[in-house]
């Protein structure tokens, strides 16, 4: 964000000018955009919709603006007190504007013993802010979290949904500058490179490779899935760039399915959302360090690959 421009002339709620569709379609300054009104309409029914509404608003604005909460109250007929209570209860939600990049340092038990607090401190000194704060140029927000579900890789740092594993104090500076300069560095165009990946469960670290079954002439990745009351296996091609799958049940297009580790039966979920369709991402550990995340929606090709120190 350009802090020199007079912020009041522009839409004051959205952190991400580049992605604001309302800006692109309009002339002149925008005081406030109505994007969240659509969001409310979408989830209006049912009490459980509240968190979904707040999540979506937050993912668009980076935080929950006061005016948005008031509109949610008005549109859903829920009292502002309840909405505010929910918004302040979950750590996921922020009522303060957040920086462009969200840095979450894990201070969970496993990461703690592997030096998570030192990493958190290093981020604090490098960014010059405390945990929970945002830099004055609105570029970074630093938070600490209690377990990201990838304990085997600790200490873990997540920047904008990208996982950094086994982070060392000396790497902190690099992580910061990298996320600042090139956001898209790790996204490899699928048609340019294909190579097989060997993956394991982020919880139990057990390999997910199925040597008996080949897909694209490489051992397949085997997971358990569940959707619509069905429960069965799914094999994914381990070739990066290939989207071939085999499954016990036919997967309807666009269906979001839940992924489980066939060994420890833990659900494979991280916190990140698919950059393409905003369904939940499914994280898996890549042998040799790093994390691959794939979209849980059938047919969506969203994925993110973070490899440790490997130049891809």
């Amino acid at each position: 964000m350009n802090s020199n421009s007079s912020v009041t002339d522009l839409c004051s709620t959205c952190n991400y000018f580049a992605t604001c569709v309302y800006r692109q379609e309009r002339e002149g300054p925008i005081q406030f955009c109505e994007m969240f009104v659509e969001v409310v309409e979408k989830h209006k029914e049912g009490y459980g919709g509240l968190i979904a509404i707040l999540e979506e608003i937050q993912s668009k604005y980076g935080y929950l603006p006061q005016a948005a909460l008031r509109t949610v109250a008005e549109k859903t007929g829920r009292s502002l007190v309840d909405i505010y209570g929910v918004a302040t209860f979950y750590r996921l939600f922020s009522l303060e504007p957040r920086g462009k990049h969200l840095v979450s340092v894990c201070k969970g038990t496993a990461c703690h013993v592997r030096g998570g607090p030192t990493i958190a401190e290093e981020f604090e000194t490098q960014l010059g802010i405390g945990a929970g704060q945002t830099t004055s140029d609105r570029k970074f927000t630093l938070t600490t979290v209690n377990c990201l579900g990838a304990c085997a890789l600790g200490p873990v740092v997540v920047v904008d949904g990208h996982y950094y594993s086994n982070v060392k104090k000396s790497e902190v500076k690099g992580i910061i500058s990298r996320s600042d300069v090139e956001e898209e560095r790790y996204v490899i165009p699928a048609d340019e490179q294909t190579f097989p990946l060997e993956v394991s469960c982020p919880r139990c670290n057990h390999s997910l490779m199925d040597k008996e079954h080949l897909l694209d002439n490489a051992p397949a990745i085997r997971v358990t899935i569940s959707f619509d009351g069905h429960h069965g296996w799914l094999r994914l091609s381990s070739l990066y760039g290939s989207y071939n799958i085999e499954s016990e049940y036919k997967l309807p297009h666009d269906r979001i399915v839940n992924f489980f580790c066939p060994h420890c039966h833990a659900e494979l979920v991280g916190g990140s959302k698919c950059p393409e369709c905003s369904a939940a991402m499914v994280p898996m550990i890549v042998r040799g360090g790093g994390i691959i995340q794939i979209c849980s929606r059938r047919g969506c090709r969203g994925h993110m690959l973070d490899l440790n120190g490997v130049n891809v």
Partner: peptide, 8 residues
């Protein structure tokens, strides 16, 4: 419903 619990 003017007041309520906040935070945790």
């Amino acid at each position: 419903k003017a007041i309520g619990f906040r935070g945790r």
